[in-house]
Design a protein around this nucleic acid. Structure first.
Lengths: 338, 338
DNA sequence: ATAGGGACATAAAGCGTTTTAGCAGGCGTA
DNA sequence: TACGCCTGCTAAAACGCTTTATGTCCCTAT
């Protein structure tokens, strides 16, 4: 009992006019007699005609669709970005195809391939943590497919990007801890190969250096983003011969389990150890104690990725303008570092 | 400088064979000479041929795509569900088109329409909190489009569903509070028209009744899912002439701000007030105090929605089997109620 | 020698649109 | 009367693939 949907042909037949007339009438093109148009629209309404987007895409060779690839929608940062991206794209008449990589390089490749086959007109991508080789992205660029990277980008590939100044932000966070009295500051970083993480580590070290505090790499611990691992790394950090009195973490996602572990260990925050983090998730304000964090303008970043992408998609002439947007961050100070 | 992608026709031409032969060769159909097949595959590889999914969908009149509509991916429950849905669908050779309603009825309708136009073969939907009229869903059912609802369903429409026994779960949570000594228990519910919320309220009231504790509707407060509102409603609840010594909340999303508000008010958890909630987000274990919560088997629920949907999609014969899966919940007891 | 059949290949129709080129017919102008 | 020009419409090709019906060739069994 497959009921075939109404097509433009059905309408044409029952009105005794040609297919193309129906098509033009529906799309509001000129050179159609008002009476004809009216009849078509009325019948379409009555039959609940829904244009077949697939056929339309094929005929026009454009899908008005963009592909978004993110590591993981369970992370607040990415789901909030997607929200903003979807919103902005929708307003511009584009729809969004999403793929989650779960931090896997292979999945990233598969998703890109599938989306290519689905004829997306461009990509918005935040690289998986596994991704060290960016040949797959470079290939897109070579094929002239518009690509915008955000947050997790990589060096050496020439695409538009929407990012923050990780070095500066980490510098700011670290300096804040120093100024509030910390003298031995640890860093709970992300995976070793993650550019973004390394930039933040560098910013952290620069701040220490500026204030004459000997850093030492042994106060940097790398976490993957699981809770268990974060707890482990935190305990390792807090068990060093000289216990840190301040900790910067790569993300709130790491800070939560870190603070949990510290409290379990009997440490008071901020009295014994101050904590500052990245991302400023909504929950951070509710934590005990409320967590200081670097705020990124997610809403605006989402809008900007779409804007940059559409600019490329809609630039019919060859030289696609590659741009980098560095967004402003803001340090939100709460009880965890006060 | 639009570079047109390689098509089957290009391959056919340069190999001096027909289009259909190429098509069959690529798809591994029989009745192709091994040499021919080999030549085709080799050339396809060399040219990095990517089949045009849009054309394929049109030709076969099937897109192998399902539409997923959820209120909000920023909520852990939904992003985790999507994760599981996407995973399962992918394994079955389907891809997923997602739409977020942001709890808006209008957006829900728009998304359904757009996805229909994109020829999705079925829908997995969790209704928006604004949705009281379900005519749009009923229409899908009438058109014989497979639909599976989960979590946020509605009564009176005949679709497959994947849900939990909200009444029983709330009963269990409430009884747990009673058994651990609470005598005056409040409920921070969801929006008034939300079926799921009302079922939980009913379960809560049934538990009170069973234990001879006079409920009284004035101990039920309705929250939307914003933090500010949850804080407000919590303060209202905790300022009643007789202060509750136990609170059940509709979701961890509400429990976090609620506990925050309680602590701000100087109440100790669990000494002064015990809290139990729904959803068991990963963060709940890290909160201070760790939050007791009803656990839903999200992974399994996602798999089940897809299974039910595919069963309908692949049932070519008319009588689509409508099924309801009621999943097991589990009360995870942590310090907030101990 | 001929029919039957298997192996391989092809032409052509079809999926539901858009889009281009063209065609009647009416009207005003020369 | 003829010409050109609008207005409203249509036929047909195209988009890139699948699928069905149809061939051709060659081999084997009668």
């Amino acid at each position: 009992m497959k009921n075939t949907p109404v097509t433009i042909k059905d309408i044409a037949r029952s009105l005794n006019i040609s297919i193309s007339t129906v098509s033009r009438a529906l799309r509001g093109l000129p050179e159609i007699h008002p009476d004809t148009r009216h009849a078509v629209l009325e019948l379409a309404e009555e039959l609940d005609y829904q244009p077949n987007q697939v056929a339309k895409s094929l005929a026009q060779s454009q899908t008005k669709t963009i592909g978004v690839i993110v590591p993981n929608l369970s992370a607040y940062f990415f789901s909030a970005m997607l929200n903003s991206i979807e919103e902005t794209a929708l307003q511009a008449g584009y729809s969004v195809l999403v793929g989650q990589t779960n931090e896997s390089y292979l999945r990233e490749i598969t998703h890109i391939q599938n989306l290519m086959r689905s004829q997306v007109e461009g990509f918005i991508i935040s690289l998986s943590q596994d991704t060290s080789n960016c040949e797959h992205i470079a290939r897109l660029v070579r094929k002239n497919i518009p690509v915008v990277l955000f947050d997790r980008y990589a060096e050496g590939i020439d695409t538009s990007k929407v990012i923050v100044d990780n070095h500066a932000a980490a510098f700011k966070a670290t300096e804040h801890l120093i100024e509030s009295g910390c003298r031995l500051i640890g860093f709970l970083a992300g995976p070793e190969q993650l550019l973004l993480s390394n930039q933040r580590v560098a910013g952290y070290q620069a701040a220490l250096q500026k204030h004459g505090l000997e850093p030492g790499d042994d106060y940097v611990f790398h976490c993957n983003y699981t809770q268990e691992n974060a707890v482990m790394q935190t305990l390792a950090l807090m068990s060093l011969p000289q216990q840190p009195d301040g900790v910067v973490t790569i993300s709130d996602r790491v800070a939560y389990p870190a603070m949990y572990a510290m409290k379990q260990k009997g440490l008071r925050i901020p009295e014994d150890v101050r904590v500052v983090s990245f991302n400023n998730e909504p929950l951070s304000a509710l934590f005990s104690p409320p967590l200081s964090s670097i705020h990124q303008p997610i809403q605006e970043m989402g809008r900007e990725t779409v804007r940059l992408l559409l600019k490329q998609i809609e630039a019919t002439d060859s030289p696609t303008p590659v741009e980098t947007r560095i967004m402003e961050t803001q340090l939100i100070i709460r009880a965890s570092s006060r």
